[in-house]
Write a protein that binds this DNA or RNA. Sequence first.
DNA 1: ACACAAATGATTCAACTGTTGCATTCATAA
DNA 2: TTATGAATGCAACAGTTGAATCATTTGTGT
Lengths: 295, 295
Amino acid sequence: MPQRDPLREQIIAQYDAMSPQLQQAARYVLEHPDEVALVSMRELARHAAVQPATMTRLAKFLGKQGYDDIREHYVAALRRGSDGFAAKVRQRNEGARASADGNIAAHMLHGLSAQISRLCEPDSLQRLEAIANTLKSVRKVYVLGLRSCHSVAWHFHYVMSLLGDRSVHLDGPAGTGGDALIRATPEDALLVVSVKPYAVATLELTQLAKDKGLTILSITDSEVSPLVGLSDQTIFCPTESDSFFHTLTPALAISEVLCTLLAEDDRPQALDALQRADEHFLSLNTYSSAIPRRE
Amino acid sequence: MPQRDPLREQIIAQYDAMSPQLQQAARYVLEHPDEVALVSMRELARHAAVQPATMTRLAKFLGKQGYDDIREHYVAALRRGSDGFAAKVRQRNEGARASADGNIAAHMLHGLSAQISRLCEPDSLQRLEAIANTLKSVRKVYVLGLRSCHSVAWHFHYVMSLLGDRSVHLDGPAGTGGDALIRATPEDALLVVSVKPYAVATLELTQLAKDKGLTILSITDSEVSPLVGLSDQTIFCPTESDSFFHTLTPALAISEVLCTLLAEDDRPQALDALQRADEHFLSLNTYSSAIPRRE
DNA sequence: ACACAAATGATTCAACTGTTGCATTCATAA
DNA sequence: TTATGAATGCAACAGTTGAATCATTTGTGT
């Protein structure tokens, strides 16, 4: 499928020699080749969060005479790709063959894609927004997810911790995970993630939080999950997959959507918090090279 | 192949009512739809042997507000067409736009769904299978994912740990995460997950593992990720999302697919391992045994 | 601490974009 | 023929494009 693309290869080859801004521009070009052909340089630069001049400089850096040389390349590629439908038919066939060959991976990915897209049903969206609204209004958010759900809970907490200090992750070594609930009040909420089989510790901690008067929000897998009875609000994530295991990809998607809704609620504050996080990590040398700019 | 194109049909329907010049312009547009998206109006007019103004007039004649409406139509068509794989995605996107009155959640979920479905491209599938094959053949799998990628790495390790003891998670308190590499040998592999911005510690540990002769497999976000140069095999996951944050949902999907491929490789053994895990958890009362009755 | 070079941001400019109003041409009917 | 109205060509427009220039910041070696 990947037709040889000399310019693309050239960009990759010279990438390491570029300045940070040039890298950012180059990376965007690599990831959105069609856009280069379809929009103006300035718009491309805006999307890449880069100065327009940087695109020109990228062209010069690659030895081209100007940005138009780059665009011309991608225009030509797009022309070739779209007109001769021989290429397209070939692509289709390859894809079809791959997925028909009893290819587990393709089948599973299709399934995941469908499950996530099914989360767009009105009912789910409504629940998502409702939970997001509750999360906005509370003082602190305690996040609980054990065993397989740890990844989802942790990720939610991690993103939230970049935005402020309202999130507390209920986890820790030596069974101390629930200790943070000591200071919880009825003005707080517990976001709990659990899918079948439901860990006893999760249910117990949830019950404890409920007794303390916290608002219980849950991400779980079924109407008959034991969490439903304990929760004020619930959103359901599909977990069925081709394999022995439950999938947590839809649950993670839900958690990411929640984070986005929360951040979007107060954009300026979110941007401010992220700015501060950036500076923090910069001074700690946490990340390699440049930290991506946000607009 | 010609998907339903309302504008095209409209042009054909109104063709007979057009003046000769308009017909000439319309004819050229019909026969070279890509050109409309790829070149300027004046150039298009030149190729069609028509006055520039005629193109504007054609747009008005079709009830559009201006030429840009026509161009936008063909740009959109080209965007979708070049995706090749995303015939379904197209429908979804249209649906999303219709139902999304600024609905962030729906838009984001649609995007995630599309990204995952794009992983079904032959190139990605091939990389997935290749990595799975390598993973099958090695002695131990060390799993590394820091910061935002922790969730993916941890989840992979968790699932693998249910299947056997071949997986080692490189994480731990007090910066001891890399210590497990002490006993690593060239017969082992490192599965490393990292997306931009790349944590320095991740790159350093990966380099260390590479020096020790391990096979390096990586899940990362770009051809120009610093991991590419360090890795024997790489699979790419999209990370773009509507929000400030990168999304890790596609990366998690990839990791789950890898787990499935590994488990599927030796079904009986996987089932056996799971059986033993079940018994273990049962004796520990880890999971809530019965789903609570409700009426 | 300093100077120096590279990288980046801001400003400016000529060329080009799509659009519009007006002049010209053309076909047709009286 | 001439009058009439549509179709067409032309020229000028405001806005945008990609590029060049200069000022400022940033990083680096001494």
